[in-house]
Simulated scan of single mutants.
Amino acid sequence: MRRLLLPIAIVLVMLVGGERLLDTGAPGKAYENAPRAADAIARAYRDRAHDVAVSGTGEVQAVLADDTRGSRHQRFILRLASGQTILIAHNIDIAPRLPRLATGERVRFKGVYEFNAKGGVVHWTHHDPQARHAGGWLEYQGRRYE
């Protein structure tokens, strides 16, 4: 069941307008006034928000198996400074994989937040091949992956 949640969420997002996710680079809701990035994500989680542009830094808590159905995604869980955990779903058909990712490593991110009961998912952590959206990215060991 857990393995089905992310692919279902991605399909639903695409069906309801995935092409708008980062259309202007602005978040779908106004979370930019939060004093820290982790606070913005905590508010998005509390509000059960979707389509929210976010950025931040976290520590890798778990490296999960790649999602290989449809577009391939490297998946891992980050713990934010607030203690909240989020799933990062990084499209490795579009952007390079983070090499030798391990628990305890720090990763900076910019992408789109989607609520789920486990803390949320951040995706669109890559450039848009059609150049219709502001791009997201991951930074790991001094290198940016987009």
Rank of each mutant, 00 (worst) to 15 (best):
R100W: 12
G58N: 13
A89W: 12
P129L: 12
E32G: 11
W124M: 09
Y31I: 07
L80D: 14
I92F: 00
V52A: 07
H123G: 02
W124V: 06
H127Y: 07
D23H: 05
G120R: 13
E139W: 04
L22V: 03
V121N: 05
G104N: 02
V16R: 01
V52M: 04
H73R: 13
T68S: 15
F109H: 03
V121M: 13
F76D: 03
A26H: 10
S82P: 00
A34D: 12
E59L: 15
R46Y: 13
G56D: 07
S55F: 14
L138T: 09
L138S: 09
L78T: 10
M14D: 11
E59H: 12
H50Q: 01
D47W: 01
P27S: 13
F76C: 04
R75C: 05
L138H: 09
A26K: 14
F109S: 03
P129T: 12
L15H: 08
D23W: 05
T57F: 11
Y140F: 15
D39F: 10
R69L: 15
A44P: 00
T24L: 00
R132Y: 06
L80K: 09
P99E: 07
S71K: 15
A89Y: 12
V63E: 14
A62Q: 15
R132M: 07
I92H: 04
Y45W: 12
R106Q: 11
S82I: 06
G136C: 07
R46L: 15
G136E: 02
D51H: 07
G135P: 03
G25D: 00
V107K: 04
L64T: 06
A117N: 00
I77K: 10
T125Y: 02
R20L: 11
E114T: 06
P96Y: 09
T125R: 04
V63R: 15
E32C: 09
G135Y: 07
G83L: 07
P99I: 00
R43Y: 05
L138K: 07
